[in-house]
């Protein structure tokens, strides 16, 4: 019966199509044509409307706001490029951008390296049922709230009463001031961020590894490649499209890091873990300088766009498509 239905539907579709091709048509057919024209737009309308209202308008408004001084309460006043000039001269903003770049370099390298290594291990060494378990286990931190995780981690890394220092004490390591020294704070922020985010890159790499034909590995084995050489000369090149996607997404995410440093260290001690997005938040919602916050946001957006464009440009040289 289902075959008959399919046949009937096909006939109906073909019939309508032939009438259209013949240029004829009754009123109902004309309505059908009209419907076919507006139907896609009707389906797209909610998305377009949503994107326009909640993405495009805020972006444009944010860029415009960067040229105004506005504290929410008083009327905004046009200040030209003053906000940009003040932002560039502000040492806290400069340090926060530098911190963000350093964070991206270390965190993304760790995130991708860890995700790739674990993906290869899970895909190669583990039985199928364990693979499923680890895929879920590594992805699990990503679905947790970053704020909740950070609050929890704050307890774990407490210098006096934290579990981490308690465990370290068993191997004779004295209490580490994790959250009260610049190096310790940066390490914890990166660690927590990578722990929570590497699962996504891991899943991408798992997908990429699954798409590499086994014949390629067999051919490499016949040619004498074993162990890490096989991965160096087969896995990495063939995984390069996935690596590109994973690195683009990881860098964009890392450039916008906020939750972990805000909850774990509030940007301190000093400015050692203050990031660009934290400064945007502080400017807007704590100091009521929405114009300056927008200016920092515009600069950050331009940096993200420039880095992403550079990645795609470099990808022409380093990414191999089968």
């Amino acid at each position: 019966m289902s075959t008959a239905t399919t046949g009937m539907s096909t006939k109906r579709r073909n019939g309508a199509g032939s009438k259209r091709r013949n240029g004829g048509g009754t009123g109902s057919e004309s309505f059908g044509r009209q419907r076919q024209r507006w139907l896609p737009w009707a389906f797209l309308a909610p998305t377009i409307l949503g994107m326009g209202l909640f993405t495009l308008v805020p972006i444009v408004a944010s860029v415009v706001l960067a040229f105004f001084r506005w504290d929410i309460i008083s009327a905004p006043s046009f200040v030209g490029f003053d906000n940009f000039a003040e932002v560039v001269q502000d040492p806290t903003v400069r340090v926060s951008f530098l911190n963000t770049i350093m964070f991206v370099v270390v965190a993304v390298a760790l995130q991708l390296g860890l995700a790739l290594a674990l993906a290869i291990m899970v895909q190669e060494k583990l039985p199928a049922w364990l693979r499923v378990f680890f895929r879920s286990a590594f992805f699990f931190p990503l679905i947790l709230s970053a704020a909740s995780v950070s609050i929890f981690m704050r307890y774990l890394f407490n210098e006096q009463f934290g579990v981490v220092n308690w465990l370290l004490s068993f191997v004779g390591i004295p209490a580490v001031p994790w959250l009260t020294t610049p190096a310790g704070s940066a390490a914890v922020v990166i660690l927590v961020y990578v722990w929570q985010n590497f699962g996504f890159s891991f899943l991408l790499f798992i997908g990429g590894l699954a798409s590499i034909p086994t014949e390629t590995y067999e051919a490499a084995s016949i040619d004498g490649a074993t162990g890490w050489r096989k991965h160096l000369h087969v896995t990495l090149p063939l995984l390069s499209p996935t690596t590109l996607v994973a690195s683009v997404m990881a860098i964009i995410n890392a450039l916008q890091v906020f939750d972990q440093p805000y909850v774990l260290t509030r940007g301190g001690p000093g400015d050692s873990t203050r990031t660009a997005v934290m400064v945007i938040f502080e400017s807007a919602f704590q100091r009521l300088e929405f114009g300056q916050a927008s200016a920092i946001g515009v600069i950050l957006t331009l940096i993200i766009m420039a880095i992403t464009a550079a990645q795609f440009r470099l990808s022409k040289r380093f990414v191999f498509y089968q």
Binding site: P182, G267, G268, P269, G270, D271, E282, Q286, R287
Partner: peptide
């Protein structure tokens, strides 16, 4: 009135000052 900025300026330097 600039309490938020003042508080940030104080807090961010305390840990370094006493450590």
């Amino acid at each position: 009135p600039q309490q938020a900025a003042v508080e940030t300026a104080l807090m961010k330097n305390v840990s370094l000052a006493v450590s």
